[in-house]
Simulated scan of single mutants.
Amino acid sequence: MKKFLLVLLVIVVIFGGAGLFGWNYYNGIGENPLKSDSDKVIVTVERNATLNGIFDDLAASGNLRNLILTKLYMMQHPLNTNIKAGTYEVPADATLEELVKELREGKNINEITVTIPEGYTIERMGGLFEDKGLFSKQEFIDAAKAYKHPDWITNVESRRYAMEGFLMPDTYKFEKGITPTYALDVMHKAFVKKMDAILKDLKIQSPNTRWNRIVTIAAMIEREAANTDEMPLVSSVIKNRIVKRMKLQIDATVVYALGKESTDKVTLDDLKVDSPYNTYAISELPVGPIANPGEAAIRAALQPADTNFIYYVLDPKADAHFFTANYNEFLAKKAEFSN
């Protein structure tokens, strides 16, 4: 009898110990669900992926201690599982809660932030993308040339790039491995969305067949104005010159016609460049936008200030333009500011 009781006690101790071990192991899943030979585990979340699917992937790659217990633990300890697509670097010693939080709020290591400033040309955008390591400048230029432009963009054969002006300057988040065409598509859709929003806000009815003209003017405003406050004034000069049938004579169009981004000074020889963009040579608007304008410039093109100004000259000390309707006053200020 004593022998039987001893055996029974041993059995109880063994199963009790196993149960305690199992319970501790189960709770340990919450504290340390991952396993890895390094201090990091790379977790990729595809679009529309579920957390259970992520657990399956981790188990398949040998980076999860126990698939069944992990899913069971999640059922007993619900968390916010609104995870987002991306690739994440998770510490190998992360808790289950920390793992899920990283997939929900963490930094996508394959995501690259690109800020396109107002007034950038397609060529400058290409250089920026190259600097960010997404693709080369030439690949972006080639893609811009081949991009299927909307039907309302006209005179394409005379333009340097049909899409110049119709890519919205903004801050974008792109994944490594995207194509230049994808980037162009995202920026053009952003432009269309922004144009629609501006027109709606200003209560202006303007079919997209007029967007060529609006954006061509906006691009000149963007490249000429010293600041956003000046933009409606520059716009008024352009409007007044068009009404008076005067050549626009805007230096920024010459710079673009020369294939440059900027120049210290436009020379008399520069003004002679044969180009449909050179507003010193043509008696109309340039054939297309000379840059990609931002929202302020587009608004100024749509709503120029009510002035009689037809001249302006930069005061380098004030970093602002002097505006006038008097030619002699313009010449006097030009001489003053050049000294």
Rank of each mutant, 00 (worst) to 15 (best):
F135W: 13
F135Y: 14
K137M: 10
K137R: 15
Q138D: 14
F140I: 06
I141D: 01
I141W: 02
I141S: 04
A143Q: 08
A144N: 03
A144P: 02
K148Y: 07
K148Q: 14
P150D: 11
D151K: 13
D151Q: 11
W152M: 05
I153N: 02
R159E: 02
R159G: 03
Y161M: 02
Y161G: 04
Y161P: 02
Y161T: 00
M163C: 12
G165V: 04
G165W: 03
F166G: 07
F166T: 07
F166C: 09
L167F: 08
M168G: 00
M168Q: 15
P169E: 05
D170E: 14
D170K: 12
T171A: 02
T171K: 03
Y172C: 07
E175T: 14
E175Q: 14
G177N: 07
G177H: 09
I178W: 09
P180Q: 11
T181G: 07
Y182D: 11
Y182N: 09
L184E: 06
D185T: 15
V186I: 15
M187V: 02
H188N: 14
K189I: 06
K189H: 12
A190H: 10
A190F: 01
K194E: 14
M195D: 12
M195K: 13
M195F: 13
D196M: 07
A197P: 01
A197Y: 08
L199I: 13
K203P: 03
N208I: 01
N208C: 08
T209F: 08
R210P: 00
R210L: 13
R210T: 14
W211M: 07
W211L: 04
N212G: 14
R213H: 10
R213G: 01
R213C: 00
T216M: 11
T216S: 14
A218K: 07
A219F: 04
I221R: 10
I221P: 10
E222Y: 02
R223P: 03
R223T: 09
R223E: 13
E224H: 06
A225V: 00
A225Y: 02
A226M: 12
N227H: 13
T228L: 05
D229K: 15
E230M: 10
E230S: 10
M231K: 13
M231P: 00
M231C: 07
P232Q: 01
L233G: 05
L233A: 03
L233I: 00
I238T: 06
I242K: 14
I242N: 08
V243P: 00
V243K: 15
K244W: 10
K244F: 11
M246A: 05
K247N: 08
L248C: 10
I250T: 13
D251Y: 12
D251E: 10
D251H: 12
T253M: 05
V255H: 09
V255E: 10
A257F: 06
L258F: 02
G259D: 04
G259F: 06
